[in-house]
Design a binder for these strands. Structure first.
Lengths: 214, 214, 214, 214
DNA sequence: CATGAATGAGAGTTCATTCAT
DNA sequence: GATGAATGAACTCTCATTCAT
């Protein structure tokens, strides 16, 4: 009976622990969700911890229980978004006959993801600098990451004759810039709903063929 | 003799007035220079009036004597830089045989200007959004201005057969993005001194010929 | 037992909440008290938030936690005092035989209240105009309120034959002025302790009988 | 010839000195006039030295050449106004048969003066306290002055049987209060043009006969 | 005498973060 | 764990006064 009793208690304890753990996760997620929406609508600076905790329905103290501070929430949003972005990109075998189609598909997936998270994407792309030492540094690292991925792809493509041999560093930077600017423009400013896939196609066509008349 | 004397006095007076006026202009310029450097290193938000006046060696009151406030200094930097940028661009006759060369020269002039004012250029390109209602709006207007200029050039070029017919709006946006990103990269981050003209040439070659192997 | 335990916890919780609420109220009151004394000694303008928080032993942030700003504390002092003032006045039935005695009792209660809160009374009566848009407007409203009350009383009294028929508006204004001036004089300037009830009696006798010898 | 010449020079010198002196006086007056208008429209605190010098068409430095500071200009306006006020009052022989008429005439002159300088009068009466140490003290002294004059008159009148024997200090204070309040009300707030002499008469009638029905 | 550029102390207010409960 | 009251450094901006020219 003692055993049973103990087991029972243990079970209950586990139950509590698990339930508590679940609540922790949910709370964290709630704060992140709220922060995303607040950052998206107000921008990093104009967004205050007050806005976030009110949107999340959480107390000030709790906020600091789950995150080290305002910048850290933003960092986490940045990271998770970047992960999803990278996950949307599939490695393309440059020797495959439909290689370019696959590249286009990649680009379309990226654009679609950005459009679906337009608020966060805009913040991510537009909040450029001077936000916070931590944030600045992380944004730089993300950009480096993206660029390095593109550089690898360009070099690989050049080896297989898919693209001309170019200054990969410069071209990668230029590509990122053009995608960012186009997307920000499409996401934030224009009222007309953008045709996502068409946008991606036009962007690729531009970078593939250039402006010179054939 | 009375006349001479009066004339003399007038001269001295004018001299004083002119000297005072000169000092006013210099002071104003000193504050602008200081502000430019502070904005460049810290970004718009992290830059405080305190930083600026300390860098300029000027009292708080003096700052507000010359400028209406923090945002107004920034706006002035923005405007003057944009003017110089637009002044560096020469209208190209698309039917001229050396049209592309002239476009390249334009781009090189722009890049050179940016490199020569790297601090300001960085601020202008990286300070993105959510700074201040006034500033945000002005930055948008500058971007619109640049884009419209490019759109005009693209449409004009298409008519004369200089460039392929393209979605001018999208291409202009993409071009601006790629120039901005490349330049920011070159100006702020890299330590190695950039070969300016080479950078411009590479950028133009990319957008002209695209990545597809010939 | 679980129930008991829960009840106990609930009690403790409630206890905490109640204690916290009590502390909030006390803090608020402490700030108000400090503000009252600061306003009284320095006047509205010369009194700064800094003076108030130092007098209250409270941090700058705490002050703004409890009040929207300097003017709001003042407004609250104004309102609460005006309420107490109005509450001290009892409606007098003009047809009662002891009507005048009751009027005197009213006046004595008012004077007593003013004397007991001399600091606040002084602020209220002396801080005149040009303080702050909000404050100015509220002071005007309070004065209107008092005057209208007096006007009503005078008209009512005239109907019942208690007072002569007079220009109620002008007389009410004059009465308020004489009370204010006398009280300010008695409260702020003179060192000798004033005989409150005597003051009220003399004031009423003056306004009742006038200066003309009988 | 030397004499003539000297005399001529002396004359010219005197001329200049006199002209200079005249200009000094005019400038001083101009600043005072401007200050009066500015103080009247904005109140003491909201009136800045900047407003005054712009209204006077005088440089900042010049302002401080003629006055020790903001408060001193105000003090001077106060003093000169008080002088005019006192000058409007004629000593009344209490034994004269038309003594009360003369008192009324005095009051009417005072009221007329206040109405004619309503802006300044309002500032003078309403800017009560906490403006500036100097100003506060001077206002107190003016009030003392007025009250003492009234006290003297009341005591004199009592001796001659013109008025009842009363607490002269208290009654004088009350009279001043009622005049101030009535005038401020009439000058500042009401739109309808006030009948000056009627106002004075009503005020005197109130204080003479009291409110009790005959 | 006259000027107006320069000053700086001080104003009110905000907000990320801490910590006793 | 959870709370929210408390903090204070930092912010932008004003304005009476001084003083070199």
């Amino acid at each position: 009976m003692a055993q049973v009793s103990l087991a029972y208690k243990a079970d209950r304890r586990d139950g509590r622990v698990i339930r508590a753990e679940r609540r922790r996760i949910e709370r964290r997620a709630a704060i992140l969700r709220a922060a995303e929406s607040v950052f998206a609508t107000r921008g990093y600076h104009a967004a205050s911890v007050d806005h976030v905790i009110k949107a999340a329905g959480v107390s000030r103290g709790t906020f600091y229980l789950y995150f080290e501070g305002k910048s850290h929430v933003f960092l986490e949003l940045l990271d998770s978004f970047s992960s999803r972005l990278m996950a949307a990109i599939e490695v393309v075998d440059a020797s495959a006959p439909d290689a370019w189609l696959r590249v286009l598909t990649n680009l379309q997936r990226v654009v679609r993801l950005l459009v679906e998270n337009r608020a966060l994407a805009a913040v991510l792309f537009r909040s450029a600098v001077g936000l916070d030492a931590n944030v600045d540094e992380r944004l730089d690292r993300l950009h480096d990451h993206w660029r390095n991925m593109l550089i690898g792809a360009l070099e690989n493509g050049a080896e297989r004759g898919m693209v001309r041999p170019v200054n990969a560093y410069l071209v990668a930077t230029a590509l990122i810039g053009s995608i960012k600017e186009t997307l920000v423009e499409a996401l934030v400013k224009s009222d007309r709903t953008v045709n996502i896939d068409e946008l991606a196609r036009a962007l690729m066509e531009l970078h593939l063929s250039g402006l010179r008349p054939r």
